[in-house]
Design a protein around this nucleic acid. Structure first.
Lengths: 202, 202
DNA sequence: ATTATCTATAGATCTATAGATAATGC
DNA sequence: ATTATCTATAGATCTATAGATAATGC
């Protein structure tokens, strides 16, 4: 890939994640990339096509991290999931808000993620195994009665909201980068405590 | 207030909450309000002023519902908080995403909420009482060791994320209004279970 | 020759205002 | 008289493309 092309991609990524689709112009992108505005269209034809490229790429980063370690027992498996999800988002802090924002604002983008999910058929299988594991733990009396969807939503809520609210948290309480990274570690441990104890694990 | 003026306000509210500031034009607002585009500026001068009016109004709705029932014991108090917060958001489903979205996208709006909070000095006091209650419960051994900020974030994450993700949930799983309202009730109960059990209450 | 880059511009917005006209209140 | 509403338009975008020029590869 030509340097200019990758510069444009990088600039677009930075701006779309920072300001969203609407507030980003191809003129802005060219300025950040250090090239002519016409070149943005030369390489990617339309703003929408350029956006979709970045959008699907970011979604796949998220999707790719949603894996289940089936060699572990349930507790280790859940623990590992929270660790890896937190870790991945720590290095991609803006992605959760970016994806949710664009999916809520523009309904026509929702088919993109449906397609990406069904393309990777393994995820349906992951969920089935996850569901089986949970039902198993309940029947063994290791955790309380809970629906798989509820446990999933509990974990996702606690993790994703942490990252969505992060810019507001760090701004409001005037935290620097070092404090933020301690905060994220701290929240991760608290999320584990709440979830483990909250379903009766331990 | 003149009918036209309130029509414009209503139209602006609908559009800003649905599509956000950037994607809403004063021409759109006029169209929905059924009046001339110039009238939007006649009554509110600028798009920004009109937006700020709605933004602060919506924020105050949220802030106003964050009250603490100090006559109750801790458990009843937390239970009551989750009930009222869920209830309020059920009738204002789009507000959480709207506020977070505009606060993240435009840093210059953050002072608006700082001002609104410090104007209502009572909220500092609420938090102090809340903090005292929690420390008290911990020292009595009624709940596990937890920082007030963590418990607050746990509860807010679980509730707010429910509403932020709601349009995606209902779209993805093709739920109708009736199912959605059952879902919200169901999530509320699950949030209570997780939080109560997760801090060792019961 | 082909590909990359630039200049220039068409055509479609969008915000905000000036100035004309209509409606309302005393 | 005052207030509300409309028409028209200035000036600032913004996307996308056409066509000229420069750089690169065989």
């Amino acid at each position: 890939m030509k340097k200019t092309e990758s510069d444009i991609l990088k600039a677009a990524e930075e701006l779309f994640l920072e300001k969203g689709y609407e507030a980003t112009s191809t003129t802005d992108i060219a300025k950040v990339a250090g090239c002519n505005q016409a070149l943005v269209h030369y390489y990617f034809r339309t703003k929408e096509k350029l956006f979709t490229k970045i959008f699907t790429e970011k979604f796949k980063i998220i999707l790719g991290s949603l894996k289940l370690e089936k060699d572990f027992d349930f507790r280790a498996s859940l623990n590992h999931f929270i660790d890896t999800y937190f870790e991945m988002l720590t290095h991609n802090r803006k992605i959760p808000f970016f994806l949710i924002n664009e999916l809520i604002m523009r309904e026509d983008r929702r088919p993109i993620i449906r397609a990406a999910i069904s393309q990777e058929m393994s995820y349906l299988q992951y969920y089935t195994e996850w569901d089986k594991m949970i039902k198993d733990e309940i029947s063994k009396g290791n955790i309380r009665q809970i629906e798989t969807m509820d446990l999933t939503l509990n974990v996702l809520s606690l993790i994703i909201f942490t990252f969505i609210s992060l810019p507001l948290y760090s701004d409001f309480f005037e935290k620097d980068e070092n404090e933020i990274s301690h905060y994220l570690q701290h929240r991760k441990e608290e999320v584990k405590k709440l979830v483990f104890q909250g379903i009766g694990l331990e």
